[in-house]
Amino acid sequence: MSQLLRFTDVELYYDHVYALKGVSIELNEGETVALIGANGAGKSSILRAITGLQGIRKGEIVFDGNRIDRGFGPDAIVKMGIVMVPEGRRVFPFMSVKDNLLMGAFTRTDKGGINATLEMVLGRFPRLKERYTQAAGTMSGGEQQMLVIGRALMAKPKLLLLDEPSLGIAPKLVQDIARSIVAINRDEKVSVLLVEQNSRMALRISHRTYALATGSVALSGESTALLEDERVKSLYLGGEVS
């Protein structure tokens, strides 16, 4: 398996307050890797560092063999094949579902390819097809989540970053979203880095997991093994029902 993403000893600060203090993680091609941890542990900060939304102070981020942590803005990162679905979904609320999806393909110029991806996305999320001309802001939370995942797929990414796709979504829909993530990873050969507070869901659908605590990696390993790990059970799977 070849390595797609490597984070080495990354430190990230907001002004003078650290959010990441020496984080090292890896993701291989074809993998789904989960990042779990409590509020403020630094999960989103890892994704923001990868996308270039937030600069890092120390360490290295390597994608596909190239360093990407210096001198690349968010738009350049998208062109390299990394697309993020941000926390809180962030659809373009006054645009139609169609225009939202087309925005996902903003960096692409191959018309035929874009249409093929559009077919794939609409096939995967039939709900989007029903709502095709509706303003995205008027859809339910679950539908919006499908839309932003679809929008990200429109870029034909190599690596998909998902920030809490289950947040604020009806439990039944969480199942659907989880299944879609597995299917996207398997069928579309997209590697996935998944941030989740729903640790059980994250451990179930990922190959490997890193558990973060206040800016560093506390635990990591195969997700199936971690699901049985006593520390994980008490710390991350505690009061959750599923």
């Binding site: 939304l53 993020m84 941000p86 373009f92 609320p93 006054f94 645009m95 925005m103």
Partner: peptide, 14 residues
């Protein structure tokens, strides 16, 4: 239009 509606999301689309 995307930029006007959500700057960050537009950036994330490239």
């Amino acid at each position: 239009r995307a930029l006007a509606q959500d700057r960050v999301a537009a950036q994330l689309m490239g």
